[in-house]
């Protein structure tokens, strides 16, 4: 893999020291604008209760207060069983990733490569469904799930993902369309059927975009607040997002605990992304496609 990933880069000659320096300066500047605010979050998370959070000059790095205990308080508050919430969230998130990747890769492939009557119309309708705001669908959808007897269960949060999602179908379709079609044609000539082409040729090729899907589905369902809140009614079914939202109140916002909890919340998604990068960057080069 290494040779190919390096080999696919542009003309080696342009990669001079100066070029690299410019790139590093840009990267470091961008990183700073992202990390400084996060430093402010950490500073806030480490403050004792009632210490002023909104100081006249922003404190970018923790200097005076080191209440590491806040992380434990945020996580171990008996009123908010975060371990339980985490288990529930992980379950919902995993089911959503599996459901979305399965259904959307199949449908996306069909829209990209199969020719059938009304394909373009169907595709346009799919795009239009993305336009309908969830604010308008919340109550009708609620009534539907309620009438299915799913109120108070996790089913409304899981089952729909197995029926596809317009955003990800569209994403995968576009990705497949940018892949050279020769490999698939060759496989067809070699006697593969449509399913085998999909399974053995297309699926490996679209791994980067499936990783993107997984990361986005993870983020969406990990941070989703309203869905779990509206459908779940027992505390033991609640998710991390509800637990965190319960820390923000207009009367007495424990901003230190809130920031601590949010910093902890970031860790799983960041780890997932860090690990997923290997898959994300690879694509065609990594399967060794020869033109």
């Amino acid at each position: 893999m290494t040779l190919q990933t390096i080999g696919r880069r542009r003309r080696p000659g342009t990669r001079t020291i100066a070029w690299r320096a410019v790139a590093y300066v840009a990267l470091i500047a961008m990183s700073a604008t992202i990390l400084l605010p996060l430093g402010w979050m950490l500073t806030t998370a480490l403050k004792p209760d009632f210490a002023p959070v909104f100081t006249p000059t922003p404190q970018w790095f923790p200097t005076t207060d080191w209440e590491w205990n806040n992380f434990a308080r945020a996580l171990l508050d008996p009123a908010r069983p975060f371990w339980r919430y985490t288990l529930n969230t992980v379950f919902i998130v995993t089911m959503n990733i599996v459901g979305t990747v399965l259904s959307c890769s199949l449908v996306g492939y069909a829209f990209a490569r199969l020719r059938f009557r009304g394909r373009e119309t169907l595709f346009a309708i799919l795009i239009i469904t993305m336009l309908i705001p969830w604010q308008a669908l919340l109550i009708p959808q609620f009534l539907l799930f309620y009438n299915l007897g799913w109120y108070g269960t996790m089913l409304p949060l899981i089952v729909p993902s197995f029926f596809g999602n317009a955003f990800f179908i569209f994403l995968i379709r576009q990705y497949i369309r940018s892949i050279p079609v020769e490999l698939e044609l060759a496989a067809r000539i070699d006697g593969c059927n449509q399913w085998q082409v999909f399974r053995h040729i297309v699926l490996p090729l679209i791994r980067p975009v499936l990783m993107v899907c997984a990361v986005f589905v993870f983020l969406d369902s990990w941070n989703d607040l309203l869905g779990p809140l509206v459908y779940l009614i027992r505390d033991e079914d609640f998710t991390v997002a509800i637990g965190i939202a319960n820390m923000v109140t207009s009367r007495e916002p424990h901003l230190n605990l809130l920031m601590a909890a949010n910093l902890i919340m970031m860790i799983p998604a960041t780890l997932l992304y860090f690990l997923a990068q290997k898959q994300l960057v690879g694509g065609i080069a990594s399967v060794g496609l020869k033109g």
């Binding site: 190919q4 080999g7 696919r8 990705y175 980067p208 990783m211 994300l280 960057v281 694509g283 065609i284």
Partner: peptide, 9 residues
């Protein structure tokens, strides 16, 4: 970034 991976080297 994912799209860029698709450009044949």
């Amino acid at each position: 970034l994912a799209g860029l991976q698709n450009v044949p080297p």
